[in-house]
């Protein structure tokens, strides 16, 4: 495979600008898991002006809800979930200073527009490769919404988590470019 760009979190504006759709990256540092229910609670808190349990400035949210860790494990299987379900919440999170999102599958036009406005990057991980991905997770701790079980917000420390830049901050979109390239019209 081609050159892999190493990324250490939190993300800077310059780092985000330097990433292009189709880049292979490996992410190290802290990332936060949040999916449907946590996003609902976070955006509700933002609307009512409550303080958030995590400061998302410069951070990456990973759309994931892991399986329980077996004894001796840091985390269970931990692959990405479908990002599209978070589309309704993502612009609000980007306005909070969020710089990156990791998930799987395409995003809405509104999300891509908001990414361009806020200089945010969207990484794709391989959906369904969850046992493999767990190897990159070195620490895991629930930091908010414990009552949500698998949907709680977890602070993960990852090492060389492999991802692909699916949509960059300029709006270049691998889901469109790739499909266009391989579409066969009779």
């Amino acid at each position: 495979m081609s050159h892999v760009k190493k990324i250490v979190t939190p993300l800077t504006e310059e780092q985000v600008k330097g990433l292009q759709a189709g880049d292979q990256v490996s992410i190290s540092g802290v990332i936060y898991t949040a999916r449907d229910a946590a996003h609902k609670l976070l955006t509700e808190a933002i609307q009512t002006g409550e303080e958030l349990p995590v400061d998302f400035k410069g951070q990456i949210i990973y759309y994931a809800g892991p399986t329980p860790a077996k004894p001796g494990q840091v985390i269970g299987s931990c692959g990405p979930t479908t990002s599209g379900r978070m589309d309704a919440y993502s612009p609000t999170m980007m306005a909070q200073g969020l710089k990156g999102m990791i998930g799987k599958g395409p995003r809405s036009k509104e999300v891509v527009e908001s990414m361009k406005e806020n200089n945010v990057v969207y990484f794709a991980a391989i959906g369904g490769a969850a046992a493999l991905i767990a190897d990159s997770v070195k620490e895991a701790e629930v930091v908010a919404f414990d009552e949500l079980g698998p949907e709680a917000i977890r602070r993960l420390v990852v090492e060389d988590y492999p991802c692909i830049v699916a949509i960059d901050a300029q709006g270049n979109n691998l889901y469109e470019l790739g499909v266009e390239q391989y579409k066969v019209t009779d």
């Binding site: 299987s77 959906g127 046992a131």
Partner: peptide
Amino acid sequence: NVELSRNENAPMCQD
């Protein structure tokens, strides 16, 4: 991932 999950008896997908 299929091989790893089978060998380690780990769920292949978190869902």
